[in-house]
Design a protein around this nucleic acid. Structure first.
Lengths: 203, 203
DNA sequence: CTGAAACATGAATCATTTGTCATATTGAGC
DNA sequence: GCTCAATATGACAAATGATTCATGTTTCAG
């Protein structure tokens, strides 16, 4: 067992308010710098400069650049789920919940593109975290669909396949209509997608 | 105007069979090395070792690591489109073509995960190439949908939104069912997706 | 055959950055 | 107001890996 009293673990939780603030400052700076320039191009120097601290201070709170990155992915993962849970909480039925969820997701992406970029980049930088993010998400999604099916709110079908399909569609629509194009009519996008999803493409 | 006769452009086309072979060897090695370990982790040394050539030789054919990468993205882009065009060529109607297209795409991804990884990583390594890839793809996709709509093969709707939605869904299904899980029942996945897309989720 | 262009080599260069460390400073609890 | 753990500093050692280059070898048109 490591002796935390003599050899303090790097990246142990801060013990004072001051420490907490510094750690937060690093995370926020990392979100901006990594989110804007990408993981590879972002240097620790960039991050600490933006955070207004010395380079060495970084290593008091994180073992490596990789570690902040993972922390940011986790943060984004939690945040997105919380946001969507909130947004869909009092929907009358599943399809309405899905619609509101997609709308909220697009708004979220437009609001914090940096965090979105970080999750996307996690695919190559921290594949396990990336995969965990989507898998967790998909699980909840599928559960909702199964429940909806039981209630007769959607036609029967493979909930897992559907969940992944719906996530995928949300992801790329976010990229296309909330990041690349910054003034798209998101309500129109959602309407169109749900016209397709609810009633199908067949004439 | 640069004088190509005295200062040969690096990355000019090879002029002999031998040169062509070497260039191809580099591309194939780069596909494997970058596709498996990621752009950042892949070193020129790794690539040239795998290609069986000296490090300096690399720079006869490519200006930088970035340049091979872009070339690979382009290659993948062309290849995927050709493959899908072929796979959907003699479909009786649009929805059948879409179905066959998705099935073929999943098979393609399962077959060459390295190339797929490269396109995904392009999002951060070569954003313009990444975007060009999807935009080109979406354009063709949307045209097909517009035509199908005219023929009365699909219900009217915003073809661009639909095109992106369908692409997004294919992308993440590829990741989930062709890369992460290597023995998924791809026909089942396609059936389920098309049940949803054709007839809709509403009971 | 032959010479010039094309191609190939790999050691050396060079720029970049990570992560460390010896040395301050801060502030909470006594 | 002292003391010690926590926090902060910034210069620097060490590694890394992309790119260059001076020199050799191969190819092929004439």
């Amino acid at each position: 067992m490591p002796d935390a009293s003599t050899s303090r673990q790097p990246s142990a939780r801060p013990r004072t308010r001051r420490g907490q603030d510094t750690r937060d400052a690093i995370l926020r700076a990392a979100e901006v710098v990594i989110g804007e320039t990408g993981f590879a191009a972002a240097s620790i120097a960039d991050i600490t400069r933006k955070a207004g601290i010395a380079q060495g201070t970084f290593y008091i709170y994180f073992q490596s650049k990789d570690e902040v990155f993972r922390e940011l992915v986790l943060e984004m993962s939690r945040l997105t789920r919380a946001f969507l849970t909130e947004a869909t909480a009092d929907a009358p039925d599943r399809l309405t919940a899905e619609r509101r969820g997609l709308r909220a997701f697009l708004a979220f992406v437009a609001e914090r593109p940096a965090l979105y970029n970080i999750v996307m980049e996690a695919r190559s930088v921290a594949p396990d975290a990336y995969r965990a993010h989507y898998t967790t998400f998909a699980k909840g999604y599928a559960q909702n669909l199964v429940a909806a099916e039981r209630e007769g709110e959607v036609r029967p079908g493979d909930a897992e396949v559907r969940a992944w399909a719906l996530m995928g569609l949300a992801v790329i629509l976010g990229e296309r209509f909330a990041i690349w194009e910054t003034d798209a009519d998101l309500d129109h996008v959602v309407d169109q997608v749900f016209d397709m999803l609810e009633r199908g493409l067949k004439p």
